[in-house]
Amino acid sequence: MTYSEDMATLDSADIGFSEAEPRDYFALLKPRVMSLVVFTALAGMIVAPGGIHPFLAFVAILCIAIGAGASGALNMWYDADIDRVMSRTSGRPIPTGRIKPQEALSFGLVLAAFSVLTLGLLVNWFAGFLLAFTIFFYAVIYTMWLKRSTPQNIVIGGAAGAFPPMIGWACVTGTVSIDSIVLFLMIFLWTPPHFWALALYKVGDYEKAGVPMMPNVAGMKSTKGQILFYAVLTACVGVLPYALGFASPVYGVFSAIMGLLFVQRAWRVFRMPDTDAVMAPAKSLFGFSLLYLASLFAVLLVEGLAVRFGL
């Protein structure tokens, strides 16, 4: 059979012309994660001492968002096999066949390179380095190494999600400080109770995919104890911006109240019987954890804006 005859027997679908819409590529960026990254990075930028031109601030936020999106695309490329078997992720563009793994890999790498180089060239190279490290940490350290090998995956991997406010801070100051490390710790310590609350009621999904999450390795009881431990640490670190003087007493009171409510919900999870099939306390903790982090950073953001505009 000649080449042309061979080709004549195929139609475009056989040789895999892409039918991916632009929105499928957008989905690869994990837009919901990206929005939280943008929000926390913006808060870090606004709270940081010093100034940055508003347009460069916009460029910085865009680069951080695209960098976060790139790591999301690389994560989806590598995890396509386990995404296929989990209900939460089976509708993603690669498992459904709308985008090929190779396309996602190229897309992620190109966006990662563009976001880091643009941030370095237009804002500063230290921020660019931090963004590159964050992408590397999420895509390689967390996705390729920790996620499938240890139940501590999201404890250590949580650092990737905690870097954005530090990058935002570095965009303005060009450095790292105790204050920006506190912003980092607020997200870093919040990540385990947030994800383990989800893992408690999605334990079957993770088990099916062979991902060693804490509940299916150490058991429910141990996980609930660790959720409580990290919730207490999160609540303590949450008030540090006030204690260190870069947030007002209003933030101090607000963060203390929210911290107590967070610990209270973690306590309810701790007291939840192992036989509870509905797991309402775990679902409540998961929902509240999102509100907790978003509201604390929202108050920091509003206060920072008020200071910058002399209100």
């Binding site: 080709m7 195929l10 475009s12 679908a13 892409s18 991916a20 819409e21 632009p22």
Partner: peptide
């Protein structure tokens, strides 16, 4: 020659 289907042409244009 391989002819793209109408939907493939449409999404290629959007991309």
């Amino acid at each position: 020659r391989i002819e793209l289907t109408e939907s493939q042409k449409k999404v290629r244009r959007r991309r």
